[in-house]
Structures are given as structure tokens and as C-alpha cells.
Nucleic acid binder design. Structure first.
Length: 831
DNA sequence: TGATCCCGCCAACGT
DNA sequence: ACGTTGGCGGGATCA
């Protein structure tokens, strides 16, 4: 509305640049904030183009960003200006914000860049929509698009009016798991088959039979459209949102994701997706317009998912021609096992609410009407309850209306603000690492270095003993604070912190070496290969036809990077450690601080979600350790370091991370098709059966790669428990390691599973420990945890937990028992 | 052209 | 009544 986009953009650009880049400079955001039309990117026009072109290449972007960030604000600004002004004419044209520059995907990237993948604690990470919109120079409407899909993944949750909480990827695994399950329940696989079949046979003609088939396939859920899938912990939050008929985006996004998770070659064409999504709502009437609209939405969603690097655009070539499709590049999702979920669940849920929360299973079931049940998310009563809770929470928090953003005053805001700017560096680094991490070691190196720099630079920030965030609305410097460098000593404030605490970090390190191999091994390039996918599903031939060629648009440029040779696990490993030691301190200290902050928060606030720490892995860990969990600031460094060694280390630096890594790698690199079958076979059952489990080492045996995680996990756990000193790592059985069990890609899958198992086990252990309620443990006894545990029990196989708890008493034995038992649970619990 | 998908109207909701 | 959310689809861009 303001003006013509084109003409204005220049100004906008420059302006935006200012905004984004210079945190300090911005004394105040001018209240009137004229939103400039164009979203100016911090990047140079040139870079923009490049970026745009290689839509996905996060590296570049990150690099750019990094660079810019590193640069003095002034410099950057100047540069921008120069560019802008000089470019006045033709040159500028090119740089002009083309449509692409306004793309949702790009916007989403920017958005994501502001927040850490694994925020230390939810507290800091508040998102003020207005703020974000302003800073990114976009209309709020667009932010909604992003947030909505993020919400569908539980990466954010709505807190209040203009407010969202950023969870990052902590819940991602669980969410995906849940989604997968639901998808399976809905028989999405079959639906997909049907549609494909139909397509092949002919275009959409309405064969009565076809339709019937379709109907049948849909049959179970029929008109049912599942409502928003919630995670146990997340529910309430969602509740607030739930009010409105969450129709599309949110739900649609989930469904879309489900399709990926369910389908064997994890590739979904827009067409199919659209049809299925439509189909659910109303069988048939492929209204053209409707279809079109659906596809539009799917693009929106896909863009965001792409930014999250969960999917990637590809083309499926058939007889007819090539159709746009997307390939899942996100983490592998384990075969759904309820057990897992249960465990997971505990982790997720915010303590407060947890009690009211039905078991996670129930939730999922209720949520998903897959079986033709109703589809309401939760009982109204619950909702009310939730709402009330939320309200309280909100009260506590600020209830600012949208326009608020201006003042840095607000603690929350500060917090939120902080991440965006200060945190960016790390974030960026993270991104790079995560995405196709391998790209260049160089990059990693750079990142790491940059990260270091960041820390160094940041020192200004003094870790003052912060008053509870509420109390201290330090207005000005607020931005900086969050990063606050940690005093070398453990956090002064929180007594809670354990000395070992840092151990978490070390764990991560330990793990890497072994994993490095694994990581190294995989090469992303595979994607390129046109693989005829074998359909696991019933319908055979058809599929093969359908998915003849799969071409990656981008061609995974980065892939080349991944040379197995490059990564030298052995060499690097030591390096890492060494570096770690020095850095570690910092990190730790930081972490500690963060903890403190968090704790304070909690105390201040209601302690709501904060208290729980979530690890990607799903480990339930005492706050102390939680510290590590946040990759946010410093962790990145670690990552960077690690990454250099191994290609991708995504998740948290901690032990929990490790397993994830393996899986993720797998997911990314290996063509899904191949992997899938194996996984299935291996899945929980087999595991359970295996006696191996009792032994931590044994687990690894199955998978070559797997071992590491297991051992690491074990050590991690033990350490936490206090059974073993922090530095010590439980040795993985070397012999087993070497076991050449599977040399092929399958390994990966195995590893994944193992990983999962291990995770579970570890979780169990942790839980057990918790259960014994060893107050002795330094960790804080936080309510949340407690709640969690309870929660845990309830939902989960009732037996399982109890059994565990019973056994849990002798530390050592317990651990063993835990290992063992849990497995069983898995089996049993699984329906 | 078809594939993408930006833009923003305007209705559903919340307060 | 007004602000927040966000469905929806025209039509501009891109390839």
C-alpha cells in the first residue's frame, strides 16, 4: 500500500539493512515505523542474486550474514549505501528486489536466522510478531505464514496475542514421529498409491470404481480430517490457537509432512499432496480452483519447510513430463513406536500443564481422528483449563499489543531481540552446519573461528548477576546481555549447576570420533541418482513408473564437498577436544549463566515450560546439563569444531545430539527408499528381542556406526548420574564396532535405529534415575521434571514405567535394568 | 506457457 | 469496535 514496491525498495533496502545489521545503532525503533516495502536483505545485491538462484544454498547466505555481522555495522551500512546509491541505474535494477527476494523462503530463512535451532530454554525465545515483521520488513501476514508452519512442527507455540515462543528443533523429532504415526494411521501411504495409480491410469476421470477405491482408502478417516496434531507438552499452547478452526496451513502443513514421512521414497509431488489434502476434506470434486488454491498453499508450506531444510525441491519425471515434487531431507523418523513416543513425551511437556495432559498416545489419537473418531484436539474442559493456565502465564508475561515492539525495555523483548542479532552468528553457523553441512570444511572452520570471534567480541557483555528478568528491564543494552559471556566460574547464581555440568559438552566430543566415520561415509550426492524406487507398499509396478526419475534441481552442489576422505576423524578428534577444553570453559560458563537466567525466569514466571530442558535426543536432563542443550550461542562453536570433523552435526552438542546426527545424516544422504525397508525390519521389535541391549556396547554391534552413540550415551548417562566421572567415557566395545555388519547404506539405517534405541535407553535410564528421585543428584529438583515423570508414566505403557521405577534403585544396576527393560517396553507398549 | 507464489482483501476471531 | 489471524485467490514473475 505504501508505494510501489519497485521504486521504493531502494530506500527500504537500505533502511532494512540498517535495521537488521546495526543492532546498536538503532537507538530506538522509530515507533511510527514506516514499514518499508521491500525487505532489504543484509546481503549485497549480488549476493542476493546468487542466493536466490541457488535458493537453498544456506552457506552463501550464512556466509554473507556472518560476514556482515562480523563487520562493523557502520561498514556494512556504508557498503550498503554505496551499493544502493551507486547502483542507481541499471545495475541497481538487477539488484532490485525481485520477486524472489521477497519470497517466503527467503523470508523464512531470515526469520530462522534469528533464533537458535536449539534454544537453551524457551524463556528467552519469545517471538513478537510485530517486531519480527518490522525487522524483516514484511507484512505481518507473511510472518503468519511462516509461524503457522513452524507451529505445525511445534517449533514455535503461541503464547499470546502477538507472542510466540520459540522452541527450535527441540521438539522436532517428536513431532515428526507423531506425525508419522498419524500419517500411518491415516493410511496415507495407501492414499498416495491410489492417487498415483489413478494418475497413471488416466487423468482424473471419475471412474466410479476409482473413486470408490479412493473413498475406501480414505475410508477410515473419511470425512475425518484430522485436527492439528499436538505434542503432549505443546498442547496447551496450541490450545490458544486452536480456537479458530485451524484449517489449513497449520494442519495442512502437518499433513504434508506426514506424506513425506509415510511414503517410501520420501518424495511427494505437489499434485499428489494436493489431491490427498483435498481428498480428505471432501472426496472428489477436484475442483480446479480448489486444487489450484491448495497448491498455492502447498508452495507456501514447502517454502518454509525448505528453509528448515526438511525438504528440498526436486522433480519427478514421468512419462508425462516432470512434475514438481519435494523430497524429504529432514531427519529420519523412526518407525513409530509408542514407547518412543512416550518417552519423548515426557520430555516435551511443560511441567505445568502436564498433569492435565492425557497420555501422549491419547493425545495423538484424539488429535488425529484417523480412525474416524472425532477430531477434536482436546476436551473442551481441558481447553478451558489450558486457557486459564495460559492466561495466567500471559498475565505474567507482558500482554503487549502488537505495536509494542519498540522498546527494548521489556525483558522478553530483550531476550527475543537478542537472539536475533547477537545470536545470529551462531545461528548462521548452525544453519550451515546443519543444512548440507558438509559443504566445506572451510566453512566450518570459518564458522568456528567466527564463533570464537563472536564470543570474544561479545565479552563486553558482562554477566551481571541478573535480576529476575522481570525485574530487570535494562533498557538499552538489553540486546547484548543475553549472550552474556559467562564468567569462567560456574554460574555464580545458580547453585544448581553441577560441576560435571560441562561434561555434557565433553560427551559430545567423545562421541564424534567414532561417528565421524559414519558421517563421513555417507555422501549426500546420492540424491542425484535417479533411483527407481521400489515400492514397499502394495502397489508395485505403478510406483516404479511413477517415480522414474528423480532429479534434484539444485544438483546438490554442496555434495561434492562431502568426501569421506576429507574428514579425518582420528586427527581431528583430538583437535576438537583440545579446542574444546578452552572453549569449553566459556561455553560452560555461558551455559551456566543461561541456566541461571532460566531458572530465574522460572521463578519469576511460573516456571512454566522453562524448567524442562529438552534435548533433541529426547533425553530428559536436569537443568544443569540442560545448559549444554542450548546450542544457541556458544554451542555453535562447538558444533563448528565438531562439524569440521564430521560433516553434519546438527543437534545439540550434547550426547543426545550424536545419535541424532547419525540419523540425520542418513536421512539426508541416503536415498530414503533404500533405507526404509531395513529400518522397518530392524525396528523396535528386533531390538527388543536382542539381548544385546542390556549391554550398552552391544547395541552398537548391530550397526557399525551405532556403537558410538550408544557408548557415548551410556557414558553420558552414567556421568550424569554420577556413576562415573565426567571425563570418562564408557568404552564402546571395539570389537563390536568393527563388526562389518553392514557395509552398505543400510548401515546407516541401522545405526539410526540403534541410535534411537540407545536414546530411548538412555532416556529411560535418566528417568529411572530421576525416579529414584535421587535428590542427591545435584540437579535441581524441578517441578517440571517431576511432572514430566508423572506424565510419563501415565501415558506410556503403564507397566513400563513402573517396572522401571521399581528396578531403579541401585545406580549401576539400575542403569542396566533400565537398558534392558525399556526395550521390552518398547515392544509391549507398541500396539 | 506453466510453474511459482506475492500480495493483500477481507472474514473469522479475540478482546 | 477494533486489532489479530489467516483463508483465499488474482494476477505478477519466473523459468
Amino acid at each position: 500500500r505504501n508505494v510501489l514496491k519497485t521504486p521504493l525498495k531502494q530506500a527500504a533496502t537500505s533502511h532494512s539493512v540498517l535495521t537488521e545489521i546495526q543492532p546498536d545503532c538503532q537507538p530506538l525503533t522509530p515507533p511510527p515505523k514506516p514499514k518499508e516495502i521491500l525487505p532489504a536483505d543484509p546481503w549485497t545485491p549480488t549476493s542476493n542474486l546468487k542466493m536466490l538462484i541457488s535458493a537453498a544454498s544456506p552457506e552463501i547466505r550464512s556466509r554473507e550474514q556472518r560476514r556482515e555481522l562480523s563487520n562493523t555495522t557502520s561498514e556494512v551500512l556504508q557498503a550498503k549505501y554505496c551499493l544502493q546509491e551507486h547502483l542507481s541505474g541499471d545495475e541497481y535494477e538487477k539488484s532490485q528486489p525481485s520477486r524472489k527476494e521477497k519470497s517466503l523462503g527467503l523470508l523464512c530463512h531470515k526469520f530462522l536466522a534469528r533464533y537458535p535451532d536449539y534454544p537453551s530454554t524457551a524463556e528467552n525465545n519469545y517471538i513478537c510478531l510485530d517486531e519480527v515483521a518490522e525487522e524483516l520488513n514484511v507484512e505481518r501476514r507473511r510472518i503468519y505464514d511462516i509461524v503457522n508452519v513452524l507451529e505445525s512442527l511445534h517449533m514455535v507455540s503461541r503464547l499470546a496475542k502477538n507472542r510466540y515462543a520459540w522452541h527450535g528443533r527441540h521438539n522436532l523429532a517428536k513431532t515428526l514421529q507423531a506425525l508419522k504415526k498419524v500419517g500411518e494411521e491415516n493410511k496415507y501411504t495407501q492414499q498416495i498409491q491410489m492417487i498415483k495409480k489413478r494418475e497413471y491410469e488416466h487423468e482424473f476421470d471419475f471412474d466410479g470404481e476409482r473413486n470408490e477405491e479412493m473413498a475406501r482408502s480414505f475410508g477410515s478417516n473419511e470425512h475425518s480430517e484430522m485436527s492439528f496434531v499436538e505434542l503432549p507438552g505443546m498442547e496447551f499452547r496450541a490450545a490458544s490457537v486452536n480456537s479458530r478452526k485451524d484449517k489449513s496451513l497449520r494442519v495442512m502443513s502437518q499433513k504434508f509432512v506426514m506424506l513425506f514421512l509415510v511414503s517410501t521414497p520420501q518424495i511427494v509431488s505437489l499434485e499428489v499432496a494436493a489431491k490427498i489434502l483435498i481428498g480428505e476434506d471432501q472426496l472428489e470434486d477436484l475442483d480446479k480452483s480448489k486444487f489450484k488454491t491448495k497448491i498455492r498453499r502447498l508452495y507456501d508450506i514447502a517454502n518454509v519447510l525448505s528453509s528448515l531444510q526438511l525438504i528440498k525441491k526436486v522433480h519427478v519425471t514421468e512419462e508425462r513430463g516432470r512434475k514438481p515434487a519435494f523430497k524429504w531431507t529432514g531427519p529420519e523418523v523412526l518407525p513409530n513406536i509408542q514407547d518412543t513416543k512416550l518417552e519423548t513425551t515426557s520430555t516435551i511437556c511443560p511441567p505445568t500443564i502436564s498433569e492435565s495432559i492425557p497420555s501422549k498416545e491419547q493425545c495423538s489419537k484424539n488429535l488425529f481422528p484417523s480412525q474416524g473418531k472425532q477430531n477434536f484436539t482436546r476436551h473442551p474442559s481441558l481447553i478451558k483449563l489450558v486457557k486459564s493456565i495460559e492466561n495466567d502465564r500471559r498475565k505474567i508475561q507482558s500482554a503487549p499489543t502488537s505495536p509494542v515492539k519498540i522498546s527494548a525495555t521489556d525483558t522478553d523483548q530483550n531476550l527475543s531481540a537478542f537472539p536475533s542479532k547477537m545470536a545470529q552468528l551462531p545461528v548462521i553457523a548452525k544453519h550451515q552446519l546443519e543444512g548440507q553441512s558438509k559443504k566445506a570444511k572451510e566453512m566450518k572452520m570459518e564458522l568456528s573461528s567466527s564463533a570464537l570471534e563472536c564470543h570474544l567480541s561479545s565479552p563486553e557483555v558482562v554477566p551481571k548477576p541478573e535480576p529476575p528478568r522481570t525485574a530487570a528491564p535494562s533498557q538499552q543494552p538489553a540486546l547484548t546481555q543475553p549472550l552474556g559471556v559467562c564468567p569462567p566460574s560456574h554460574s555464580p547464581v545458580s547453585p544448581v549447576i553441577l560441576p560435571h555440568t560441562h561434561s555434557g559438552v565433553s560427551y559430545a566430543i567423545y562421541l564424534h570420533p567414532s561417528q565421524a566415520h559414519t558421517v563421513t561415509t555417507y555422501s549426500p550426492s546420492f540424491m542425484l541418482q535417479p533411483l527407481p524406487c521400489a515400492d514397499v507398499t502394495g502397489i508395485k509396478s505403478i510406483n516404479s513408473n511413477i517415480l522414474n526419475k528423480i532429479t534434484t534441481e539444485e544438483g546438490d552442489n554442496q555434495i561434492a564437498t562431502a568426501d569421506p576422505t576429507e574428514s579425518l576423524p582420528a586427527n581431528e578428534r583430538p583437535t576438537v577436544k583440545s579446542e574444546t577444553s578452552s572453549q569449553r570453559c566459556l561455553k560452560r560458563s555461558q551455559a551456566l549463566q543461561e541456566n541461571n537466567l532460566i531458572k530465574r525466569y522460572r521463578s519469576d514466571e511460573e516456571s512454566v515450560d522453562t524448567s524442562l530442558t529438552f534435548f533433541p535426543s529426547g533425553y530428559l536432563i536436569p537443568l544443569t546439563q540442560c545448559t549444554h542443550g542450548n546450542k544457541a550461542g556458544f554451542s555453535n562453536k562447538e558444533k563448528a569444531g565438531i562439524c569440521s570433523l564430521q560433516h553434519a552435526t546438527y543437534s545439540s552438542p550434547i550426547a543426545g545430539v550424536i545419535p541424532v546426527t547419525a540419523s540425520e545424516l542418513k536421512a539426508v544422504n541416503i536415498p530414503a527408499f533404500q533405507i526404509t525397508p531395513l529400518n522397518i525390519m530392524l525396528s523396535p521389535t528386533s531390538v527388543a528381542a536382542a539381548p544385546v541391549l542390556s549391554n550398552s556396547c552391544l547395541n552398537s554391534s548391530n550397526t557399525s556406526s551405532a556403537q558410538n552413540p550408544s557408548s557415548s550415551v551410556l557414558s553420558f548417562t552414567l556421568q550424569h548420574v554420577g556413576l562415573i566421572p565426567a571425563g570418562v567415557q564408557v568404552p564402546a566395545n571395539p570389537v563390536l564396532r568393527h563388526m562389518p555388519v553392514s557395509s552398505q547404506p543400510e548401515n546407516v539405517s541401522h545405526s539410526t535405529e540403534n541410535k534411537n534405541l540407545q536414546e530411548k535407553v538412555s532416556k529411560n535410564i535418566l528417568q529411572l534415575l530421576d525416579h529414584d528421585g535421587s535428590p542427591s543428584v545435584p540437579r535441581e529438583p524441578q517441578e517440571p521434571q517431576t511432572v514430566t515423570e508423572n506424565f510419563f508414566r501415565t501415558p506410556g505403557g503403564p507397566n513400563t514405567v513402573s517396572s522401571l521405577s521399581a528396578s531403579s534403585h541401585g545406580t549401576d544396576r539400575i542403569s542396566e535394568g533400565a537398558l534392558y527393560i525399556p526395550q521390552r517396553k518398547l515392544e509391549v507398549s507398541e500396539d
